[in-house]
Amino acid sequence: MSILVNSDTRVLVQGITGRDGSFHAKGMLDYGTRVVGGVTPGKGGEQVHGVPVFNTVKEAVSATGANATVIYVPAKFAPAAMREAMDAAIPLIVTITEGVPTLDMMDIYHEVRARGLRMIGPNCPGVITPGQCKIGIMPGHIHKPGRVGVISRSGTLTYEIVYALTNLGVGQSTCIGIGGDPIVGSGPMDLLPLFEADSGTDAIVLVGEIGGDEEERTAAFIREHIKKPVFAFIVGHTAPEGKRMGHAGAIVSGGAGTAASKLKAFSHAGVPVANTIDELAEMVAAAMRR
């Protein structure tokens, strides 16, 4: 079992003829993901790695029955690509693109919810259910099928953690990189209940970083709603204040946003927080042996 994606997921690649889109479509195909079509306006009728290309998302969906899409188009065009996917009512939209304007994401965040769809990203590595379906840019081979769910705001740090888990023999049910932008389609509080309800997940790893108050609110949410064990890791203890979070963030959250504040919130909610990646992997491995 898993959440969001599995071996039945039929994936479209928006921007498949671009350099990144084509490269990662190949990586997804090699992993065994059912990539059923690509979309690039004006390139309909072509093929990329044997995958048919369509001019519009709607055409692609009606021809292939796709139920997920991944967006690799440049930031300038990404909001339009996300809207096109929403208009075609694709239930899962994964946006890899980095650099989408925040106000555009504000609009899209609320629209995607109003339509009952789900978005992961932007500025994220994607979603993977090991052994079944990889949507995004993560290296597939470091993953291993298993029973630990992973939710993270980061890319390579997530790979590092997954790799440490795999090396200790701890497999993953599904790993989600939610994205590092101020506004992303799905946050930990959207995804934790899915893992809680998934019979294939026994424990959850949550990787957070400085900025905003998502982790603080997530900690409170876990205490109320999540019974499965959650293990956390926070980065940015050494980040200078004000460098990444602007003046505004500091006011809005009133003391929240620092790594120390997040750590405190998790401890208060009874969520163990590891000091190092190795320690995190060992904590999870020990819990899984029990």
Partner: peptide, 17 residues
Amino acid sequence: MVNGAGLAMATMDMIKL
């Protein structure tokens, strides 16, 4: 010198730790 922002922060943290 690190690849990825999250890992870069984790590296700084670990050095401090």
